[in-house]
C-alpha cells in the first residue's frame, strides 16, 4: 500500500466507497482455507471496494492456561484480517471476511464466523492438506460451507469424486471448481453456498406420503 492510499484511508473512504444511506441490515460470509490458497484474491474479485484490513485483539483468558502461567501479565495478541463488501440492494450489505490462514489465529476464526450465513473453504489441489484445519473447524462448529477448488496453473483439475474422499467431506458439502481471479466465478461460489443454505433450511415441500 503506498503512502497516498494510506493517507486517504485515514481520512475515510472515497465517496464512491461509501454505503448508501438506505442500508439497514448487514450479513456476512466467512472465507477460509490454508495459507496462500487465494482468500484475499477471492475477496478482491467480488468486493465492490478494495479489500480492507483491520485487527482483532485477543486478551488474557482466551489464551491457554499454560500461556497465562508463562506470562502472568495480561497478554494481548493481535491479528490482522482482510475483508470486502458487496451492497446487495439498497437496504442490505454483505461482508466477506478472510480468516487468517494459520491455525494459531483460530481465536479470530470464531469471531469472524459468529453470526455468519455460512462459509467458503478454498482449497489448492496441490496442497489439499493446508485446508484441513479450516474444514475441521467449520465441521466442529456445525457451520454450513462449500468447498471451492481454486484452479492454479499447473494444478490438475480433479474431479469432485476424488476431492471428496481426499478431504473426508460429507456428501452434503457442495464442491465447486473456480478461479479466484474471476469475479463471476467467485459470485457463483457464494450463490452455491446460499442455494445450499436455502435447500437445507427450507427444503422444497415434499409430496405427501402415500398411505
Amino acid at each position: 500500500m503506498d503512502s497516498a492510499r494510506r493517507y486517504e484511508h485515514e481520512d475515510g473512504p472515497d465517496s464512491g466507497d461509501r454505503l448508501p444511506s438506505t442500508v439497514e441490515q448487514s450479513v456476512k460470509i466467512w472465507i477460509g482455507g490454508g495459507l496462500g490458497v487465494g482468500k484475499t484474491t477471492f475477496i478482491a474479485s467480488v468486493s465492490e471496494i478494495d479489500p480492507l484490513s483491520t485487527e482483532a485483539a485477543m486478551t488474557d483468558l482466551s489464551l491457554g492456561l499454560d500461556d497465562v502461567t508463562l506470562v502472568p501479565d495480561k497478554v494481548t495478541t493481535t491479528v490482522a484480517f482482510d475483508f470486502g463488501r458487496i451492497t446487495l440492494n439498497k437496504r442490505l450489505v454483505l461482508y466477506l471476511f478472510g480468516a487468517p490462514g494459520q491455525e494459531r489465529f483460530r481465536f479470530v476464526w470464531d469471531d469472524l464466523l459468529a453470526g455468519s450465513l455460512g462459509a467458503v473453504v478454498i482449497v489448492d489441489t496441490r496442497r489439499l492438506d493446508t485446508s484441513f484445519e479450516a474444514i475441521d473447524f467449520l465441521e466442529s462448529k456445525g457451520a454450513r460451507f462449500v468447498v471451492a477448488v481454486n484452479s492454479f496453473e499447473g494444478a490438475q483439475r480433479f474431479p469432485v469424486e476424488k476431492i471428496r474422499p481426499a478431504l473426508a467431506l460429507s456428501d452434503h458439502v457442495p464442491i465447486v471448481n473456480f478461479d479466484a481471479r474471476n469475479p463471476s466465478e467467485c459470485s457463483s461460489v457464494l450463490l452455491k453456498l446460499m442455494e445450499d443454505l436455502q435447500t437445507t433450511l427450507y427444503p422444497p415441500t415434499a409430496l405427501p406420503e402415500r398411505p
Binding site: V27, L88, N89, L92, L94, L117, P183, S184, S187, M194
Partner: peptide
Amino acid sequence: EVMDGLRATL
C-alpha cells in the same frame, strides 16, 4: 434477497 443480490453481480 442475498441470492438476488449476488445474481445481479454475475
